[in-house]
């Protein structure tokens, strides 16, 4: 077998493969544990030693999506026999469903705020990055440094001023407020990342389009944008993950209408004893959108996170 600097040997490949698989298992265990816990009964979820094989139950999911009240004998009688499978589950615990829980709304808030801020961030970020990459902007380097410097302190350090500002502007607990806030926080990262991607697109492509008779704006969206797609996709994933997982601002600035899922999930614990299966179910569902988004864009992501490392 020939040996070269770029082609790993079979041994190295095996070793690398095993290492990656082990690493994947180690990182996946907590995740699998959460998914499993979502399907356990409350008793199984807190049993010690922990049970690995258990009888699956949907009680966690039912509890996640419903509000229930403890029922007296006559209440149960007045409600009649349980019709649906989820009614049966709650009746077994001596409770009846009084309505839907707030989880659905909170989840929708997360979707609106997460994807909304990501979209806005991509529009503004791409425009700014294009300008920084292609045009003579006065004080360009200082501006870029200033944009980056907003990342140098943890955003939460300015939480109080933002809280006061939002209260005065009437943005407290609104979707718009949260979208603007997450956009502002993400923008520095996305301008820098996107500028890197756009810098890598040779300017000749746009010039060719200009020569072919297109306007600068047409050259931008017909030639630059399709080629920046990879960069935009991977930047969007970073932005979405931040906005999706953000907790501190969400706790501080939202309580009702615009509350996102992260501050809501812990409140499930308090409403009906330590309902770990419901918490785990909430967390599991919460994971899905980012996972789907990432999988959809994964072929871009790989090139995105290694960009600059590989020359074409």
């Amino acid at each position: 077998m020939s040996f070269s600097a770029t082609e790993p040997t079979r041994g190295t490949k095996w070793f690398a493969g095993i290492a990656v698989v082990l690493y994947a298992i180690i990182t996946l265990i907590p995740l699998l544990w959460i998914v499993a816990t979502g399907f356990k009964s409350p008793a199984d979820s807190i049993s010690y030693p922990p049970v690995v094989v258990f009888e699956p139950s949907l009680e966690g999911y039912v509890n996640l999506f419903t509000a229930r009240t403890r029922a007296t004998e006559d209440m149960l009688e007045a409600a009649g026999p349980a019709v649906t499978w989820y009614d049966k589950i709650t009746r077994n615990r001596g409770t009846i469903i009084s309505g839907p829980s707030r989880y659905g709304e909170r989840f929708m808030n997360s979707i609106i705020i997460g994807f909304g801020s990501t979209l806005l961030c991509m529009i503004l970020g791409t425009a700014a990055a294009y300008a920084f990459s292609r045009f003579k902007v006065p004080l360009k380097d200082d501006l870029l440094f200033f944009i980056l410097s907003t990342r140098m302190m943890p955003p939460i350090a300015v939480a109080i001023p933002i809280f006061l500002m939002f209260r005065n502007l009437g943005l407290n607990d609104t979707h718009l407020g949260m979208i603007l806030l997450y956009t502002a926080v993400n923008l520095s990262l996305s301008v820098w990342l996107l500028k890197g991607f756009i810098d890598e697109i040779p300017i000749e492509y746009e010039e060719a389009a200009l020569i072919d008779g297109y306007t600068r704006f047409q050259a931008f969206y017909k030639v630059v944008l399709p080629q920046a797609a990879t960069g935009i996709a991977s930047t969007a994933i970073f932005c979405l993950i931040f906005a999706w997982n953000e907790y501190a601002f969400a706790v501080l600035l939202t309580s009702g209408t615009a509350q996102t899922a992260p501050p809501f999930i812990p409140t499930i614990i308090g409403t009906s004893g330590k309902d770990w299966p419901a918490v785990a179910a909430g967390a599991t569902i919460f994971l899905v959108p980012v996972m789907v988004f990432t999988i959809l864009l994964r072929k871009h992501l790989l090139r995105g996170i290694t960009f600059g490392a590989v020359r074409k």
């Binding site: 040779p202 000749e204 492509y205 010039e207 060719a208 389009a209 020569i211 030639v223 399709p226 080629q227």
Partner: peptide, 13 residues
């Protein structure tokens, strides 16, 4: 006018 670039600049997409 038409311009032929050194690296050709064919639209890659």
């Amino acid at each position: 006018i038409a311009f032929v670039f050194q690296m050709f600049a064919l639209y890659p997409h």
